[in-house]
Design a protein around this nucleic acid. Structure first.
Length: 866
RNA sequence: GGGCGCGUAGCUCAGCGGGAGAGCGCUCGCUUCACACGCGAGAGGUCGGUGGUUCGAAACCACCCGUGCCCACCA
């Protein structure tokens, strides 16, 4: 065993061992109530691992390993998502670089090309997941485009259509001119844009004056169908019901009244263009207005309402031309610069063009109702709780979902249209001539919504489905609660009659160290692999702009996992490398603590708790507390608490004190000590294993008598071991040793100097040797006589008298004693004041008052001893 | 416009009704036979502000200031 733990030497080997052992593949036996399962949020096949995945995986692996330790059949369902737009875009780019395009090679060719691409690169992310140590069931990998999965998707579509949830309609959609597809509200980002707000006069039909409207999109005026004002707006009362003339086109526009119109914005008069604006679309519907269109799906002007001179030019050009024409007519009253937010496509980055389009929609309100109830009733719990409210708020006002996409890569709709206008929706094509299959595919999230059960073989009633559905936890980040989590709940209930999972853990989004989002293009993104195996730090780590940020050391997957868990909380957090480094040190510490034990115990020794001394009882009690603390933290999804509780135990109790106290007996080769140490070591790596699986597995392999893999080791429930007398004694000894060290430092005593001293204190019967060794004292019995004390160190229950020695700076020691006295006096005053307060004594709980009294007594005794 | 958070040591954060904590950084000391990715000791905070509840507030309430995110249809 090396003096340093080298994760790069260990982790890949251990990962392979786990893979070969089969422990991650449970047999599909029993039912879901006794088993444990998690469905992984399927990464995109185009994906590479990012920090979000790393944290997401760390959390799930911690949960699944803990469940496995508790003896449950535990399955972590693995798979990837076909990710419609993202994947199509990547392959299209590749085609473009070859000088071709999807249009050129045609749909069939294109799709087979995507499959080839997927074969080649789709496995990379799986490889990366393995490198993280994630104990997913690698033997069964799902893909949302697999045949079985596709069948489930088709069945769901057909069923929902038959039930009347899915329908086809002309509706205003978010049209993405970049991907040439409709997209859902959730795939849209708002960005701030500065536009020109034009005030345009629309002459009144009466010939008396004009009504002025404000718009940032004059080109859409060709599709205006009305002008709306607020019914309470006194300025326009008399005009309601009148008619205005649409400039350029000459169409008559009725002036209508609608509450939507704000009186304090623009002119208070709003041109109504239902074909190109979501609000106008709603207003138009309320008033039974038509919704003509003047902009096509490609962003060019088209339609019967477009004058010939504007046909076939881009909307942006049309805007300039129309503004020029209006200027010529003297109808533009004024212009204003106007900054507002407008929607952009998340994928293509293009500005959304709201268009009337014939699309497939899904009515959500009825499906939402039971999905709301299960959260309200607490059958599905969100962690942190607040996220449940976010979910409920969204569900309460859910809107129809546009599920068709004008893409090629995805689940093609099981829909056929006939020349004569008939529509056939079924799992199988219709008979006879004249039918053609719908070209559209489904929104990727439609298939993702079936993930927890379609991955287990649904709609077949498979053994896997029985054993592992419903799953237990869903681990995800906030940004896909609506896109994914909500839809899984709705579909799960609708098609299986059961909730798909009982706990939703919403983890942090890891931000760059400077608080910006992590992104490659910003230079803020971190590739977890660079953290694990070593690699360049991104520019954001530079101490000054332009400076070389250097390289990450090879921290290893354990360190990255522990670091991320320690960082994470209920809210977004900034990445800080120190936590990863802290984890590296923890791993190294555990490694070296193991070396201490393993190099000194006999190979025939076996782990068994055989406590002899007070510190043995103490560490066994502390171990149980740590097990309880870590376990409870994991069970309540408080991972940073779990990580830090482990750290505190390993450093603050095991290494700093127990190993130091036990060394003499260990060096003596005492068999009881060896057995107890092996027991403590085994239980420590077991308790740490869900958080840092690699290093603990490696250590476990070196423990004499260890059997099988730690990853498969059963960790029983915490036993109630406690020995308060021993615990008190050791705590007292620790405090005493610390006091001695502090005193020595203040008195300028060389660390190597051994001082003669007398112990005049009670309660150290079994720990006096520890005081002497770790305090570097030559202790003689307190017989009252002997040399005069040169100084006194206050320890719990008495003092240690230091006899005169050239090693002691008496002045410094005196200063130290005086400082201590002042500190004690001040604390005594505080305690006395508190106890003199009638309110405190009368109203505070008795235990609190008693504790305060005891504290005062102890303080007085200490002062007295000085 | 609604909603959810957050402001605690130089930095990143924990604590969430009874004597201010961790890691890193900083200072001093130490080749102590597991570990210098180490060991020991120490400095450093009017817990964003104001008011209130309470015997007692960093914690609970109100308001204010600062800050982050999510949702939403002001042209």
């Amino acid at each position: 065993m090396k003096t340093r733990y080298e994760p790069a030497d260990v982790e890949p080997r251990i990962a392979q061992t786990w893979l070969d052992s089969g422990i991650t593949h449970p047999e599909p036996e029993g039912d879901a109530s006794e088993n444990y399962s998690i469905a992984i949020p399927p990464p995109n096949v185009t994906g590479v691992l990012h920090m979000g995945h790393a944290l997401n995986n760390a959390v799930q692996d911690t949960l699944i390993r803990r469940a496995r330790q508790q003896g449950k059949r535990s399955k972590w369902i693995l798979g990837t998502d076909h990710a419609g737009i993202a994947t199509q875009t990547v392959v299209e780019k590749e085609l473009k670089s070859l000088g071709s395009s999807r249009e050129e090679i045609g749909r069939e060719q294109f799709i087979s090309r995507v499959w080839v691409w997927r074969e080649r690169y789709g496995g990379e992310i799986i490889e990366q997941i393995r490198r993280l140590g994630s104990s997913v069931d690698f033997s069964e990998e799902r893909f949302t485009m697999d045949e079985d999965y596709a069948r489930a998707v088709m069945k769901v579509f057909v069923d929902l259509y038959d039930k009347g949830y899915i329908y086809r309609d002309r509706y205003l959609v978010n049209w993405d001119p970049g991907s040439l597809s409709a997209i859902s509200d959730l795939e849209v980002d708002d960005r701030e844009v500065t536009d020109t707000l034009y005030y345009i006069d629309y002459p009144l039909a009466s010939g008396h004056g004009a009504i002025t409207v404000a718009t940032v999109r004059p080109e859409t005026m060709l599709a205006d169908v009305a002008i709306a004002v607020n019914p309470d707006d006194e300025r326009y009362q008399r005009l309601i019901g009148e008619t205005a003339i649409l400039p350029i086109v000459g169409r008559k526009l009725k002036i209508i009244a609608d509450d939507y119109v704000k009186t304090d914005f623009g002119t208070g008069a709003l041109k109504i263009t239902p074909g190109h604006d979501p609000n106008d679309f709603e207003i138009g519907n309320r008033h039974g207005l038509p919704h003509p269109s003047v902009i096509g799906e490609d962003g060019w002007m088209e339609g019967e309402d477009v004058p010939e001179r504007y046909l076939g030019i881009r909307a942006a050009e049309a805007r300039d031309a129309i503004v020029a024409e209006l200027d010529g007519l003297g109808l533009i009253e004024r212009r204003e610069s106007y900054t507002h937010t407008v929607p952009f496509s998340q994928r293509s980055g293009e500005r959304i063009e709201p268009l009337i389009s014939l699309q497939w929609f899904m009515r959500m309100d009825e499906l939402a109702r039971p999905a709301i109830d299960v959260v309200k009733r607490g059958e599905i719990r969100f962690h942190p709780e607040g996220q449940g409210k976010v979910y409920l708020d969204w569900m309460e006002k859910i809107r129809p979902w546009c599920i068709s996409r004008q893409l090629w890569w995805g689940h093609q709709l099981p829909v056929w249209y006939h020349d004569d206008g008939r529509t056939h929706v079924a799992m199988t094509p219709p008979d006879g001539p004249g039918w053609e299959r719908a070209e559209d595919v489904l929104d990727t999230w439609f298939s993702s919504a079936l993930w927890p059960f379609a991955t287990l073989g649904w709609p077949e009633q498979t053994a896997e489905l029985r054993a592992f559905y419903p799953t237990d936890a869903m681990v995800t980040s906030r940004d896909i609660i609506f896109l994914w989590v909500a839809r899984m709940v709705m579909m799960g209930i609708e098609f299986t009659g059961q909730i798909p999972f009982s706990d939703v853990y919403v983890h942090s989004i890891i931000q760059a160290p400077d608080g910006r989002r992590m992104s490659k293009s910003l230079g803020t993104g971190i590739d977890p692999r660079d953290l694990i195996d070593g690699g360049p730090r991104p520019p954001v780590f530079a101490s000054a702009p332009g400076e070389d940020p250097g390289e990450f050391p090879a921290y290893g997957a354990d360190a990255v996992r522990w670091g991320l868990l320690a960082m994470s909380s209920g809210q977004d957090v900034r990445f800080n490398e120190e936590k990863v480094s802290q984890a590296q040190q923890l791993n190294n510490k555990l490694w070296n603590a193991s070396r201490l034990v393993l190099q000194r115990v006999d190979r025939s020794a076996r782990a068994e708790a055989r406590p002899q001394a007070p510190e043995d009882h103490w560490i066994l009690a502390r171990l149980e507390r740590a097990r309880a603390a870590v376990g409870e933290a994991i069970d309540s999804f408080e991972f940073s608490r779990a990580a830090l509780a482990l750290y505190d135990f390993v450093y603050g109790e095991l290494c700093d004190w127990y190993l130091e106290l036990v060394k003499p007996r260990l060096y003596d080769g005492d068999p009881d000590t060896a057995a107890t140490l092996l027991h403590v070591l085994t239980e420590t790596v077991t308790l740490a294993h869900p958080l840092i699986p690699f290093v603990t597995e490696e250590i476990y392999g070196f423990i004499p008598g260890s059997e099988g893999l730690l990853a498969g080791r059963f960790a029983g429930a915490s036993a109630a071991i406690s020995d308060s007398a021993a615990e008190d004694e050791v705590q007292r000894a620790i405090a005493a040793i610390q006091a001695i060290r502090t005193w020595r430092d203040a008195a300028d005593v060389k660390p190597s100097a051994v001082l003669s001293a007398r112990l005049r204190a009670d309660g150290y019967d079994q720990t006096v040797a520890h005081l002497a060794r770790l305090g570097r004292l030559e202790l003689s019995a307190a017989d009252g006589d002997g040399d005069a004390a040169a100084a006194a160190i206050v320890i719990p229950g008495g003092v240690i008298e230091i006899l005169a020695s050239g090693d002691v700076d008496l002045d410094a020691a005196t200063r130290k004693r005086d400082a201590k006295r002042r500190e004690l006096e001040s604390e005594i005053r505080r305690a006395e004041g508190k106890l003199a307060n009638k309110g405190f004594v009368d109203k505070a709980p008795e235990a609190v008052v008693a504790a305060e009294r005891a504290k005062l007594e102890a303080l007085r005794a200490e002062l007295e001893a000085l």
